[in-house]
Structure formats: C-alpha cells, structure tokens
Computed example of a mutant assay.
Amino acid sequence: MSIRKKLNIREGDYLQVYLENNEIRLRKIEPVRPLSAEDPIWRLIGAGESGKADVSEHHDRYLAEGEIRRWKK
C-alpha cells in the first residue's frame, strides 16, 4: 500500500516539511474547522482592534489564512 493511501493524503492537502536530526519529515496538517454559532468566541468579536471591519463575517477565513502563513514559515 502506498504511503499516500496509508496517510490518506490527497491532492491539495497541506503537509508540514521539517528537518529532524538528519531526516526530512512530513506531517499531514488538518484544516481548521469552522466554529459553531454557539462558540463563546463570538462574544469577543469586536472587542479588539484588528483594523478589519468584517472580522465577525470572515473570522474563520482570517484564522485559516493565519494558520497557512504560519505553516509556510
């Protein structure tokens, strides 16, 4: 069985690539799950100053974009 099949890696999946000792390692990264409407984080929306007027509407997208930027570093 192929490694891709064993790890359920499909085209478009995100992988973290890192060096550990003298080995190159790969790790599949699961996407960020959207929050439910009942999540307490929604009470905090608007409490801080991000400079973005649409944080409550696009909260999950901003979180996902931040995670992708962090993964790519």
Rank of each mutant, 00 (worst) to 15 (best):
L26Y: 08
R43K: 09
E30H: 15
L35C: 14
S36Q: 08
I24H: 04
E11G: 02
Y18I: 14
D54R: 01
S50C: 04
L26R: 13
S2N: 15
R69P: 14
K5V: 11
N8V: 01
Y14V: 03
L26K: 08
Y18S: 11
D54S: 08
R61Q: 09
R4E: 08
L35T: 03
K28A: 10
S56R: 01
G12R: 00
K6A: 09
E20A: 05
R61M: 14
N8G: 13
R69V: 09
R25A: 08
S50A: 03
L26W: 11
Q16G: 06
N22T: 12
S36M: 13
L19S: 09
S2H: 07
R4W: 04
E57N: 15
N21E: 08
N21H: 03
A64F: 03
M1I: 10
E49Q: 06
I3G: 11
W71H: 15
I45A: 14
W42V: 00
L15S: 10
L7C: 06
E65N: 09
E65Y: 07
R25N: 11
E67W: 09
L15I: 15
H59A: 12
W71P: 11
G46C: 07
P40S: 13
R10K: 13
G12M: 06
N22G: 12
E57C: 09
K72Q: 13
E30S: 15
P40F: 04
